[in-house]
Structure formats: C-alpha cells, structure tokens
Simulated assay, not measured.
Amino acid sequence: MYGKGIRARSGRVLGVAVAAAAGLSGFGPAAPVQADTFIPLPGGSITRQLADGTNLTVRITGESAKISGSMGSTPVHRNVWTTAVASIDLDGTSASTATIKISPGYVVGCQVDISGLNANSTGGGGYNADLTGASLGTLGANEQMGSGITLGPGQAVARLMLDLERPDDYGQESHKRYNKVPVPHASVSWTDETFSVDGCGGYAQARTFVAAEVDSTTFIGNLVLYGEPFTIG
C-alpha cells in the first residue's frame, strides 16, 4: 500500500451501530493559506439494510486535516496532511459469512461545489470516478493520493488511498485498491497522510469518502459514505 501511516485492520465486534447523519455543508472561497491550518472534522456514519436484512454501517471517525501553502507561497499549490479511521460493520444474517471490501479516499475540487455528494450520487458532474454502485474491483479512481493532484477551475477528481500488493491466482504480482476482510468488521486508519494540490488558482475543497462492498453467497451490496467538505485554501 502507499503511505506507511496507513493501517488496515480487521476484528469481530458485537452489537448494532446507531447511524448518524454525515455533515454535508460546504465552504465558500477562502484566502490563500499562509501558515499551517489545523481543521478538526466531524466524520460521520451511515447505515443501510442489505437484501437479506443484514445491516451495513460505514463510519469515518477521528478525522482531521492540516493545510499549508508551498514554501514559495505560490497560491496555486497546497499541501494537505490527513488523519482518519474508516470502518465497516455488519450485523445480521450475513454478518458471519460475508466478505467486506473497504476502500477509502478523497474527492478534491477546484472552484467547484463538492458538498452535494451523498450516498445516492453517481459520480457525475465532472468527477472521474463513479463511486456509488460500482464494484470495488473496477472502481474508477485509478490514481493514489501520494501521486499529487493537478486541477484547473471547475475540475474535481477522486483519489484512492490503498495500493496493496498481493499475488494473483498464478503467483504474479497484482495491486488491489481495497482491503478484503472475511469477518463482520473491517477498518483502515491513516495518520498525517499527505498529498499536494497544484494548478488551482482559486478556492479548493476536499472531502473524504469510504467505499464499502459486501459479498455474500446470494448478493453483492455497495455503499459509499462521504465526510464533510473542508477548504484547502
């Protein structure tokens, strides 16, 4: 996987989580960032009932971002350090037999409103990834966060955080953009994972997302949770 600060974990949990509404408020234009700015973020959670009655809960917790400009104070360059925990929990009929796939990332936009994304979004409006209803094996956000992001006005892109090396069925090296866990709980955490944004002369925004897929013997269920947007200058 990319960044050494990213940790994927699995474990068994008991009980049913109570869903909370994720924040969807946006931020307007902001002055260029000169000093490091720490932004605490509320995270969020969402719960959906799958076809067989199993409850799927996706959460973002412990989320924050730290923003700084370039060393040369160039207004078209920003650096972002992000911290959060993404988790998925199952409770019900398929909880002990299904497989969970989890893939976190960030949507980043330049002079475009990304606050309207929600669990019913389809990835339209110029985003280069269809995150909702897509199989995580074919998710369209093909570049990882550490590669940096170049954006012009009116553009927005999605970037995945995970890049896991695993042998395929023939023993050859393959790369997966999700962590696959055969238990009712999965999580991925990251601390001070950084990416840069270049080329955006106006205000820019970002927001985290967690794409979840549940595979059982009878169905495949998909759900995406978006965090609250935050300004990056």
Rank of each mutant, 00 (worst) to 15 (best):
A95S: 09
L50C: 15
N120T: 15
R59F: 09
N118Q: 05
Y106F: 13
S45D: 10
I67V: 07
D113E: 05
V107N: 06
T61L: 15
V85Y: 02
I102G: 02
Y106C: 08
I46H: 15
G109D: 01
T122D: 14
A134Y: 10
A65D: 09
V85S: 08
T54M: 07
S64N: 10
I88W: 06
L50Y: 03
I102C: 04
S45G: 06
P42A: 08
I67E: 06
G43K: 00
P104D: 01
S45H: 02
S121N: 05
N55F: 09
G125V: 03
G53K: 01
S45A: 09
T74R: 15
T57N: 07
M71V: 11
Q111M: 11
S121E: 05
A134V: 12
D89H: 03
N120A: 14
G92S: 05
A119C: 11
S45K: 08
A134H: 07
D130H: 14
T122Q: 14
M71N: 11
S68T: 14
Q111N: 11
G116D: 00
D91F: 10
V112F: 13
G105V: 02
S115Q: 03
N118M: 03
T93Q: 13
N79C: 08
T97M: 04
D52N: 14
T82N: 13
T138M: 00
S121W: 06
S70K: 03
S121P: 03
G116N: 10
G125Q: 08
G72K: 04
G44L: 11
Y127S: 09
L136P: 06
Q49H: 15
G124S: 11
S70T: 11
G105F: 00
N55G: 06
S96F: 07
L136G: 02
L41H: 07
G109K: 04
V108W: 07
I67T: 01
G137R: 02
L50V: 11
I46F: 14
N118T: 10
Y106W: 11
G109V: 04
R59H: 12
Y127V: 11
I114F: 06
S135F: 12
A65N: 00
T97L: 03
S64C: 08
P75R: 10
G116I: 03
S121I: 09
D130Y: 14
L41F: 06
